[in-house]
């Protein structure tokens, strides 16, 4: 597929952030994680797009929005291969992979029903114990959670 056609799969962006290579099954989770339902910016979402690397993929373009690093890195919890394209004046000025932070606060629900965090009005806190496999551990009940079992608040 030519560059031109590829670009046409999702409407072009003048300024903003394009989040590329999202696994199709995780696309709406990623949108939720970034709180996109609360933003007034123009958002274009494409899913099940053709991808040489992944077969199919999802993409989210948000106009005039540049995320803080710790916000965007949360995506790595569920979609570690995501690439962030920072676009200014129709040009990709920066391509950046996402990287898991060491600690994740207030974002993930502990999947242990007997965990204090599920029974008390408080923030959850997880330590990332394996960045490659995306394994996290609850700082309270010490339960380990694999990437595929992570539930976002």
């Amino acid at each position: 597929m030519s560059e031109k056609k590829k670009e046409l799969q999702v409407a072009a962006l003048e300024n903003g952030t394009a989040i590329d290579h999202i696994p199709p099954a995780e696309l709406f989770k990623v949108a939720k994680m970034l709180g996109l339902e609360h933003t007034q910016n123009t958002i274009t979402i494409g899913n099940n797009l053709q991808s040489k690397k992944m077969g199919t993929k999802g993409m989210i373009k948000i106009s005039d929005k540049f995320f803080e690093e710790d916000v965007i890195n949360r995506i790595a919890l569920i979609a570690p291969k995501v690439v962030l394209n920072i676009i200014r004046d129709f040009e990709v000025v920066e391509k950046r992979p996402v990287e898991l932070p060491d600690e994740v606060t207030g974002l993930v629900i502990c999947n242990n029903p007997k965990c204090i965090t599920n029974n008390e009005p408080m923030l959850t806190r997880f330590r990332v114990i394996d960045k490659e496999h995306g394994t996290i551990r609850c700082e309270y009940c010490e339960r380990k959670i694999n990437r595929s079992d992570i539930v976002i608040k």
């Binding site: 007997k114 965990c115 965090t117 029974n119 700082e139 309270y140 339960r143």
Partner: peptide, 24 residues
């Protein structure tokens, strides 16, 4: 509840000794 003692130790300024938090 598991993690209760850790949480308690975070909210108070006096020492907490965990005498058992669930199966943890």
């Amino acid at each position: 509840l598991e993690g209760a003692a850790r949480y308690a130790s975070e909210v108070t300024n006096i020492p907490v000794i965990n005498a058992g938090d669930g199966a943890n």
